[in-house]
Nucleic acid binder design. Structure first.
Lengths: 343, 343
DNA sequence: GTGTTTAATGTAATCGATTACACCGTGTAT
DNA sequence: ATACACGGTGTAATCGATTACATTAAACAC
């Protein structure tokens, strides 16, 4: 029923080759012929069949972005950047978000690596086990990793400097004179940035010639994304016989919960407790007091990742195997102050 | 280089038809043959070519979701719902976000309607002119609209009750005794929910036998999404000779700015000024005081929209032309109080 | 034994574009 | 006048699956 290229060709009195050329490289067709073909296309409401084209050209002009969720501000900025680049390069974006469901993550990986579906994959913040990430890396689909690092395979990794982020917030608190600083590192332990953040925390202490109290480093064997659980953990921390004077939250969402708990307990930030976050989400600046946190260059991360992926796909530059680390920036607001001696 | 179905067939000693059946309806193939074929598939690392399949079957098993941005909590919940349904139904999701760029919105519409690319489209919160929406509605791609309403075309529309949302917040304030209530309706005027929200505002007054002061209804001819502009508008409103005692913000983001302005001016919410929002974004409950707002059933909206679209695609039910309106729910927190007589 | 049903498999046409190669006519160089 | 280049166009093979229809063998009824 739908018009095919052949129908257009017949109506315009040319061959399908010419119609194809009008669509793909109009400059190779004489002006008048082009006009006739365009008219025919309009008249027949011709739609090009991308499946047929893909079959012939062996490229889909589609890339998949595999992410844990789109509900995180950092991630959706990153996705926006990726899409911006994709649009200018005439690529489409297939959304694959796993929502913390590792079976689904696995299913997406299978699908991508066992079907000719996309020209490349951007794998952001893998939550699944390293073997699964490797499965994708070893398939023949061009891959770029974001927020994750693997050695050995030639897979490019684009990372924000997660060590530095927590290093900076921790140093900021140390500079205020805090010594009993807690780290709330509530993500999965095998999650790459979680390890990096812990490293940043310890490095900051080491740089000051100190070391953190292990009692105050909270890491969950079984990670949870339920705010109620988080609140439980925070309350426990503050019930400690010798409670912290400052809390380094591993991201702003957790910091939000710290604020909520403090309000409930009648604690005043930063007077009774200093708090830092990470990510600089929208609400960070609207909190009372505004939250000191770290800006992640999410947009730049996405841009760079997508550009790198395109280079891999087009094999423009075979030297792009290296890891890229992007700087993060401490955003000082009003949630930190010197420790209260009284406490 | 890559193995084709024919290669698998040869290795397994069967015809391509059988291989295809193993892939698509394994139950129609005898146990032993199936095993042989599966082994061959594994051995050759055979990947099915989706383009070839699509060409033959005339379906892509992909749907496009056209949205203004993914950075809005309501929208990303909706997208998540859509993806959840898509995954269970074996569809892929093509992300088309326009980021307020109407040229890009137009380009996406063109692309979708002039190429055989997707089996259907979910068009969420169109920002573009009605004619452009109609262009898509009149193309032969199955379409479902979200957060928008058109008459006449057989296009299903799935909507949250935007009239009711602002009706409820306004009534809530009226019940507290407020009379000088401002409406901050800062979206584009041709944007459907904007019209509905204004209607809700006026209906609430009418139901109380009152009418709003037109001076206090702020609508922008040229909409802006810049928080600084918003702050200017809010300040202007509070500088009014006879300022409002309450502000109905058209969404929580604007309410956030109202909070910021109040803090800057030393006004205390809700003592000096009552505020309501809309959307119930994450930070609403973390504000001080927690914001009274309206919960939009974003997840349900997305689910229903996707289900409806699938029914259209499969033509399961030709009676799904009707508009569906989903209820919204007032979430009372602590940002409203009776008006101060002193002000 | 004959006819009929059923399960399992094979044959081959088909989906709709792309593109290497061939071809033609005109203009330009020698 | 001959050769050559070049822009514009056509011919036809090809990409890799799906599936209607045909075929075969086995099972079963009578």
């Amino acid at each position: 029923m739908r018009a095919r290229m052949e129908d257009v060709a017949r109506l315009a009195g040319v061959s399908t080759a010419t119609v194809s050329r009008v669509v793909n490289k109009p400059e190779c067709v004489s002006h008048e012929t082009r006009q006739r073909v365009m008219d025919a296309i309009g008249q027949l409401e011709y739609k090009i069949n991308l499946a047929a084209r893909s079959l012939r050209t062996n490229q889909t002009r589609t890339i998949a972005i595999l992410i844990p969720t789109i509900a995180e501000p950092v991630i959706n900025q990153l996705v926006e950047a990726v899409e911006d680049v994709a649009v200018t390069e005439n690529y489409s974006l297939l959304m694959c978000s796993t929502r913390g469901d590792s079976a689904r993550e696995q299913a997406y990986i299978q699908q991508i690596s066992q079907q000719t579906m996309v020209d490349g994959v951007l794998y952001v913040s893998p939550r699944s086990a390293p073997e699964q990430v490797l499965e994708l890396a070893n398939s023949d689909v061009p891959l770029v990793l974001c927020n994750y690092h693997v050695e050995g395979t030639g897979t490019p990794c684009i990372l924000a400097d997660h060590v530095s982020s927590i290093y900076q917030t921790t140093s900021h608190l140390l500079a205020f004179g805090h010594r009993r600083i807690a780290l709330l590192n509530l993500a999965a332990l095998h999650y790459y940035p979680a390890r990096m953040r812990r490293e940043g925390f310890e490095n900051a202490f080491a740089a000051a010639g100190l070391s953190p109290d292990p009692d105050l480093v909270v890491e969950l064997r079984e990670p949870t994304y339920d705010a109620n659980d988080w609140r439980g953990v925070i309350n426990e921390l503050l019930d400690h016989a010798h409670p912290p004077t400052a809390i380094v939250a591993f991201n702003d969402k957790v910091a939000l919960e710290v604020y909520a708990v403090c309000r409930a307990r009648g604690l005043c930030i930063p007077h009774d407790l200093s708090v830092t976050g990470c990510d600089d989400i929208l609400s960070a600046r609207y909190l009372d007091p505004p939250l000191t946190t770290v800006r992640i260059p999410a947009y730049e991360l996405g841009q760079l990742a997508m550009q790198t992926l395109l280079m891999r796909i087009n094999q423009t530059d075979p030297t792009i195997h290296k890891t890229t680390l992007l700087d993060v920036e401490l955003v000082v607001r009003e949630s930190c102050a010197p420790p209260e001696q009284a406490l």
